[in-house]
């Protein structure tokens, strides 16, 4: 589903985000990405979502060669990749419903279909009752769940999460991980960047360890 072939990303000024990464993630896999901060976890996710382009090597997602993707095709690629952020990235002047509906509206979906799907996604993350609330009135864990609902509402085959539990206590983190496992069970390929090693160990999933932009370990389970 996702493949890196000798991929490097060098930022202007000479700093290497990642260097010479080669890996393969199969469809339906759930993979953790760990390493100290600055090790290149975010850079890898950014390369997959085409927030950045590699300076060397090829990144492929779902058979699509991202190196060759034209600028005008990037939006269509991003619709296939759901993204979850540590800081949620919700719009605070819109209700929970409107936040979650954004990817569907962007994709030009009709009103009824949008309502149906948004409610289904909110139901999955347990926030159906709060659809009219504004994000600011929700707790951190709830806001993160809204972010998750937004990432999966358009049923993308790939979901990326960048430190999704970074600001949450262990109980809430556990809930979020259970949600991820739920999505994974229906065939979504998940790539979760985290430095919460305890959580990673408990879930027994494939784990990629980055150090200074290099892939140093690739465990299939602990």
């Amino acid at each position: 589903m996702i493949s890196f072939d000798n991929v490097s990303k060098r930022y202007p000024g000479g700093h290497d985000g990642v260097s010479n990464i080669t890996l393969q993630i199969d469809p339906g896999e759930m993979v953790f990405l760990t390493g100290h901060s600055g090790a290149g976890k975010s850079t890898m996710l950014r390369l997959i979502a085409l927030l950045e382009r590699s300076t060397q090597g090829q990144v492929r997602v779902g058979g699509r060669n991202l190196t060759r993707l034209r600028r005008s095709e990037i939006p269509y690629h991003r619709r296939e990749v759901g993204m979850i952020f540590q800081d949620h990235r919700l719009l605070h002047d819109r209700t929970v419903f409107d936040n979650v509906a954004m990817p569907l509206i962007v994709a030009g979906m009709g009103h009824n279909e949008v309502s149906r799907r948004v409610r289904a996604a909110l139901d999955k993350v347990g926030l159906l009752q709060r659809e009219r609330a504004y994000p600011i009135t929700l707790s951190g864990g709830e806001q993160q769940r809204v972010g998750i609902a937004r990432a999966v509402v358009s049923k993308p085959p790939v979901v990326l999460a960048d430190e999704p539990t970074g600001n949450l206590d262990s109980e809430l983190s556990q809930e979020i991980m259970e949600l991820f496992q739920l999505f994974n069970q229906v065939g979504v390929t998940l790539l979760v960047a985290t430095h919460d090693l305890e959580l990673v160990r408990r879930l027994r999933k494939r784990t990629l360890v980055l150090n200074n932009g290099r892939l140093v370990q690739d465990h299939h389970s602990f």
């Binding site: 979502a49 993204m83 719009l91 954004m102 962007v106």
Partner: peptide
């Protein structure tokens, strides 16, 4: 700014 940035993240085209 925030709205435009998030729209781009979730796959909004330039024309959108």
């Amino acid at each position: 700014h925030a709205e435009i940035e998030i729209s781009k993240l979730i796959g909004a085209t330039d024309s959108f």
